[in-house]
């Protein structure tokens, strides 16, 4: 094993952590590593590229299949671009009751509402759990965790009855309103953990300056937990974008169908499925999440270390 194998030796790990140090020290490191670095980073790139290819094989297979004629997909396995059938994209886009952009837009609406809801309501609840001292805190925290331990399949029927009484079936409300009310308690817990990592001295200093809790929350805590907020955004986006079951149950009008429901409409185990078109539209539906991640990660890695709080 070479010294640079990341699976075995921790040296590169510590190195990469430490290279995140303030600029003057990084410069210091560069000088020290002037000789070792090119070789080491070449090997690391090689390993990472190999790992990335392995990780991406199924994704590549899907992209290749999306430009193959339907009858070839399963008869000829492998991932060689042997044909380029753009028609899967054109036909797939128009294969269902509405053009595919309708479903993309519907999903975007649900996702947007969910993200706003989760960011606002969960961060508020997290602040209370992490920073405030109140009666029955441990009890409520336990309740919060318990609320995410029941599988959705037994919750959905009573919940459907409830929303159906409110006349909310066939609207996006049952999908968005719960998020505005912080029912995705995972995110509260996540943000509690992050807030607890922020030194209390900062709050104290603000308090001495006369700031109340709303100001401490908005002006101290929120800016410092941008990575956590980015994480919540990315996760909410993906979970909502991929969520099939609750969208299936609550949305019955094709005009309101979201991407997972639309993709599902391509297939039926009892009859033929147009896989070429389904894969093509799967690729289309992956693009927004991929872009969100690509650009979102900028905020993800923008932590205290880089915002210069000392």
């Amino acid at each position: 094993m070479t010294k640079t194998d990341p699976a075995v030796d921790l040296a590169p790990l510590t190195e990469s952590v430490v290279t995140g140090l303030p600029p003057e020290q990084v410069r210091d490191d560069r000088r020290k590593n002037a000789f070792r670095k090119p070789v080491s980073s070449l090997i690391r790139h090689a390993i990472l590229i190999a790992a990335a290819l392995l990780m991406l094989y199924p994704v590549i297979w899907m992209v290749v299949s999306s430009v193959r004629p339907n009858d070839v997909i399963f008869r000829e396995p492998g991932i060689i671009f042997d044909s380029f059938e753009i028609s899967n994209y054109v036909d797939g886009w128009n294969a269902l009751s509405y053009p595919f952009n309708t479903y993309l837009l519907n999903s975007a609406l649900v996702v947007l509402g969910s993200i706003v809801g989760n960011l606002v309501s969960c961060s508020m609840a997290a602040y209370a759990f992490a920073r405030l001292d109140f009666t029955g805190k441990r009890f409520w925290f336990a309740i919060m965790l318990l609320s995410i331990m029941l599988p959705i399949h037994v919750i959905i029927v009573p919940q459907y009855v409830l929303f159906s009484q409110l006349g909310w079936v066939n609207t996006f409300l049952p999908l968005i309103v719960p998020k505005l009310l912080a029912t995705d308690a995972f995110f509260i817990f996540l943000m509690v953990q992050f807030i607890r990592g922020i030194p209390r001295e900062l709050d104290e200093a603000a308090r001495i300056d006369g700031a109340g809790h709303p100001r401490i929350f908005l002006q101290i805590i929120l800016p410092l937990m941008v990575p956590a907020l980015a994480t919540v955004t990315i996760f909410t986006f993906i979970w909502t974008w991929n969520d099939f079951f609750s969208q299936l149950i609550y949305l019955t009008k094709p005009a309101l169908y979201t991407v997972p429901l639309a993709l599902n409409a391509f297939q039926d185990a009892q009859s033929a499925t147009d896989f070429g078109e389904m894969f093509a539209m799967s690729v289309v539906s992956l693009i927004p999440i991929f872009l969100i991640f690509l650009f979102g990660q900028r905020f993800l890695i923008k932590g205290i270390a880089t915002t210069g709080i000392k």
């Binding site: 952590v17 430490v18 995140g20 140090l21 303030p22 020290q25 996540l190 992050f194 990592g197 922020i198 030194p199 410092l224 937990m225 990575p227 956590a228 980015a230 994480t231 990315i234 996760f235 990660q297 993800l300 890695i301 923008k302 932590g303 205290i304 270390a305 880089t306 210069g308 709080i309 000392k310």
Partner: peptide, 19 residues
């Protein structure tokens, strides 16, 4: 992703002090 966000949350001052 959550780990990445967590790593970035560690204040640089600790590393400086340690260094």
């Amino acid at each position: 992703v959550i780990f990445l966000a967590g790593l970035r949350q560690i204040p640089a001052m600790y590393y400086e002090a340690a260094a």
